[in-house]
Computed example of a mutant assay.
Amino acid sequence: MANHKSALKRIRQNEKRRVHNRYYAKTTRNAIRDLRNETDKEEAVKRLPKVVSMIDKLAKKNIIHKNKAANLKSKLAGQLSSL
């Protein structure tokens, strides 16, 4: 267990950030899954900018790597064009 006040604070901060990051990562994963399962092209085209924005925000905050974000966006755009 931590022996310093600052170490205890760091533990609290890390846990709070972990929960926050997990929430946004999971929300984005669900949005990606829903977009991939979408069969209506018009609806998918309307959803794509919102999902891309979510992915960009995760990459900006280093929750996911920027290359992973680029790969996800590329695959989603490719899948959308094949509908």
Results as ranks from 00 to 15, higher is better:
Ser81Met: 09
His4Phe: 15
Asn3Val: 15
Glu43Tyr: 07
Leu58Ser: 03
Ala25Ile: 08
Lys75Phe: 04
Ser82Arg: 08
Ala69Phe: 01
Ile11His: 12
Lys50Trp: 14
His65Ser: 10
Leu35Thr: 00
Ile63Val: 03
Leu83Val: 02
Lys26Gly: 02
Tyr23Thr: 14
Ile64Cys: 00
Gly78Asp: 05
Gln79Tyr: 05
His4Asp: 11
Ser74Val: 07
Val45Asp: 04
Met1His: 15
Asn37Ala: 12
Val51Asn: 00
Arg33Tyr: 04
Thr27Lys: 15
Arg29Asp: 07
Asp56His: 15
Val19Ser: 15
Lys9Leu: 06
Asn71Leu: 02
Asn67Asp: 01
Asp56Thr: 14
Ser82Cys: 07
Leu58Lys: 05
Val51Glu: 00
Arg18Met: 07
Leu83Ser: 02
Arg18Phe: 04
Thr39Lys: 12
Asn62His: 12
Leu80Cys: 00
Tyr24Leu: 10
Ala59Ser: 04
Arg22Glu: 11
Arg12Trp: 12
Ser53Arg: 07
Ala77Ile: 14
Arg29Ile: 12
Ala7Pro: 03
Ala31Gln: 03
Lys75Ser: 10
Ala2Lys: 09
Lys61Gly: 03
Gln79Cys: 08
Lys41Asp: 11
Ala25Phe: 12
Ala77Glu: 09
Arg33Asn: 04
Lys57Phe: 12
Val19Gln: 07
Glu43His: 07
Thr39Ile: 10
Asp40Phe: 03
Ala25Leu: 14
Arg10Ile: 14
His65Thr: 08
Arg29Gln: 07
Arg18Pro: 05
Leu8Asn: 13
Arg18Asn: 11
Ala77Thr: 11
Ala77Gln: 13
Asn37Phe: 10
Leu35Ala: 02
Asp34Glu: 09
Ala59Arg: 00
Leu8Ile: 12
Asp56Gly: 08
Ala69Thr: 00
Lys61Pro: 09
Lys60His: 15
Met1Ser: 11
Val51Phe: 01
Ala7Phe: 05
Val45Leu: 02
Leu35Asn: 01
Thr27Asp: 12
Asn62Tyr: 05
Arg10Trp: 10
Pro49Val: 00
Lys68Met: 14
Lys41Gln: 11
His4Met: 14
Ile32Asp: 02
Val19Tyr: 06
Lys61Ser: 04
Met54Ile: 06
Ala31Val: 03
Tyr23Trp: 15
Arg17Ser: 13
